[in-house]
Amino acid sequence: MSHSIQLQIIAAIAVITLIGLAVWAYRSAQKAHVKGYDLGYDDAKRGHELRIADHQHEIEHLQLKAANQRAAHQLERDAIIQDADARIAIFARRAAACTEADLNTLTAAANQLALANTTYKSMHAEDPARFAHQMQLQLINLAERMRVALDQPNDAQQPPADDILTFAANVSPNGKSWLVYGPDRCGKTSNASAIADALGLTAVLDDWQPGYRVPTSKTLVLTTATPPFPEFVRRVLSFDQAMSLVASKKGVAA
């Protein structure tokens, strides 16, 4: 074999080797690119999941904060209503500041606000409609408290036992809250359901103490404290009185 042929063979082998190395380098680069893409995708996915978890945690925190604010607002509202009830009752008893005519006026004004609410809604005036509805509800609540005040007797003191039992026996169901007091372990809690039924109430609050928040309606409040209870107007029974009421109610039912 001549020297030139040998050189040609060597050159061909070198070219083939170079082509093989180029193909191998290209494939290696492609694999590295795909692997890098996958790693980048995984990193981006983990980062996105972490951001979602952070947002979820923030949302839960804001929801808890909003719930606490609503609870605090409810407590403030109940305290304001309780204070307003006491003031209305005082004015009604002392100066006859509220009359049936005043009550009728409030009711008529509430009806007019209901009409205004409907009219504003038909005109697509949402803000005035919302305001009219809110004022209507406030007037309705005020009229209801005025009705309770007008039903109060002129004497602000706690009436005799027979009178308070007669009053308790004729209260409307789910009206204003009542308080029953008595020493510890006298039987208040075990008889709470029967007492609540006799007073037409659906909820029970045990272990109440003066200075605590007072539920305005539908609640039987039990306490070991002793009178007086300025938070409750005429709606106070001793445990013995409460059990007498229960017995009388059962006698009527029988």
Rank of each mutant, 00 (worst) to 15 (best):
H124A: 09
D163H: 08
A92S: 15
P173N: 02
Q209C: 01
H3T: 10
L179V: 12
F229E: 00
G36E: 12
S4A: 15
P215C: 10
R94Q: 13
T219N: 07
T223L: 04
I52Y: 12
A67F: 06
Q152I: 09
P228D: 13
D54F: 08
V233H: 04
I19E: 15
D151I: 08
D162Q: 07
W178K: 05
C186D: 03
H57S: 13
Y41C: 07
K176N: 05
I52K: 15
D162Y: 00
K31A: 13
Q30I: 03
Q241I: 00
A149K: 03
I81M: 09
A108P: 00
Q152C: 15
G211F: 02
S28D: 09
W208P: 00
N68H: 06
M123W: 14
A169K: 00
Q56L: 15
A242V: 01
A247N: 13
D207L: 05
I16R: 08
I10G: 08
G20H: 02
L205V: 02
I90A: 15
Q158W: 06
N191C: 05
Q82R: 08
Q241P: 02
A11P: 04
E126S: 05
F131V: 08
D197R: 05
E49Y: 14
D42F: 03
D240I: 04
V34Y: 06
K188N: 03
V148W: 04
P159Q: 03
I10C: 05
M1Y: 09
D206C: 10
F239C: 11
D162P: 00
V221N: 06
T202I: 11
Y41V: 07
L165K: 03
Q138L: 07
T223S: 09
N104H: 10
A194F: 11
S4E: 08
F232Y: 04
L39P: 00
R87V: 08
A79G: 12
A161E: 12
A84L: 15
D151A: 15
R185E: 11
G187Q: 09
Y26D: 01
L142I: 07
I52Q: 15
R77H: 10
N191L: 06
K188P: 01
E126N: 02
D163Y: 04
S172T: 04
Q241R: 04
P173C: 02
I81E: 09
K45M: 10
V148C: 10
I13S: 04
D162S: 08
V180N: 07
N170W: 01
D102R: 07
A89R: 09
A253W: 11
Y37F: 03
Q74D: 14
